[in-house]
Simulated scan of single mutants.
Amino acid sequence: MSLFSLENKIALITGASRGIGESMALTFAEYGAHCILVSRKLDGLEAVVEKIRAKGGSAEAMACNMGEIEQIQQLMDAVEKKHGRLDILVNNAAANPYFGEMLQAEPWAWEKTHDVNLKGPFFMTQRAAKMMKEKGLGGAIVNVSSVNGVRPAQMQGIYSVTKAALISMTLAFAKELAPFNIRVNALLPGMTETKFSSAITENEAISKAVISMIPLKRIAAPSEMAGAALYLVSEASSYTTGTCLVCDGGMLA
């Protein structure tokens, strides 16, 4: 258990109001971390904070739009002022506002998806890494990409492109930050039962088609991504950086 302990760690998780982000926050708190939950709106976050506190954990909520650099800077300023450091960052927030052919996509679709899925994680990672480097304590950063970043999905081209870029960003930061004992890894979930994926999971025809490509023959629960994330941010993965941990029920096998 000590390998997975997050006692006295400060962990920030974006997109933490539901789904995979919520499950990560609940798990990190259970293993001892103080969790800073981030999303665009505080309402959903406060409910997760209450769940964590009800179980004896420690958490707080902060609002931030991951597509706005100014808001990211304000968020990280507040974290540094209040806590003095950051040990763990999980870039989980994502957007997929356009479902359709890339040939028909308008600029707004590219800009919105790029801003949240790539620009936000880049500047969150940059600021967190600077803080970690300055404190000299090392740290762990996890970027939540997708199997779509390896195998683009039909009608999700722009989303897939940003998730592929996020994988490349992970590898680049991993090499640059390794000398400071800051580990950077990516988690690649397959199809998971969340509101984010509901357009697919709630469509019987599409859902059946997706499941047919998954050797385990089912869609994942958000909690099934939390254990993988716990490994990547804990001492259990102390020699792991620059890797992509795929959790997809065997789809890419």
Results as ranks from 00 to 15, higher is better:
F180Q: 09
E101A: 14
S58K: 13
N143L: 07
N143E: 13
Y98L: 01
C247P: 00
L166Q: 12
I13F: 13
M102A: 13
A95L: 13
E7V: 06
M131Q: 08
M102V: 15
Q126C: 05
A220Y: 08
K175I: 00
A129H: 09
D248I: 08
Q73K: 15
G100P: 10
E68W: 01
Y231A: 05
L26R: 14
A186W: 00
M155K: 14
A29Y: 04
I88C: 07
K41E: 09
E22S: 06
K9M: 04
A228Q: 07
L188W: 01
M225R: 04
R53T: 05
Q104W: 10
I211Y: 06
T240K: 02
T201C: 15
I206H: 02
M225Q: 15
V142T: 03
N148L: 05
M225A: 09
E176D: 00
R40M: 03
G136A: 08
P222F: 13
I211P: 04
M131A: 14
P152C: 03
E70N: 12
L137R: 14
A165H: 04
G157M: 09
T243W: 01
N117H: 07
M24N: 06
S2G: 01
W110S: 12
A95R: 15
I211L: 12
V90I: 15
M169D: 06
A33M: 13
A178C: 04
R151N: 12
L252W: 01
A220S: 14
L3M: 11
A93D: 09
R85W: 05
L187H: 05
E134H: 13
K133F: 00
E193N: 15
G242Y: 10
L75T: 02
E106V: 12
L86P: 01
A236K: 10
P107N: 11
V147A: 05
R53W: 00
T113W: 11
L6W: 08
G100C: 03
M24F: 13
K51A: 02
G250T: 07
S237C: 10
Q104F: 02
G19P: 09
V161R: 00
A226C: 10
I36W: 05
E101T: 07
L6S: 01
G139L: 06
A33K: 06
K208F: 02
K163V: 04
M102I: 15
G138I: 11
S39T: 03
H34P: 07
S39P: 02
E46W: 01
D87N: 15
S238D: 04
T194K: 12
L89A: 07
V49K: 12
S197T: 15
M24C: 11
I20W: 11
E80S: 14
S2E: 15
K41A: 06
N92W: 10
G32D: 09
G15F: 09
Y159M: 12
V49G: 02
V79L: 02
V147M: 14
S207D: 00
V233M: 01
T162I: 03
V48G: 12
I20L: 13
E80D: 10
K9P: 01
A228P: 08
H34C: 05
P121L: 12
A236F: 09
S197E: 14
K175N: 04
S197G: 00
S145I: 07
A128Y: 10
S145P: 05
E46M: 14
S2Y: 09
V116P: 06
T125V: 06
T192Q: 03
Y239I: 03
P121H: 11
I72G: 04
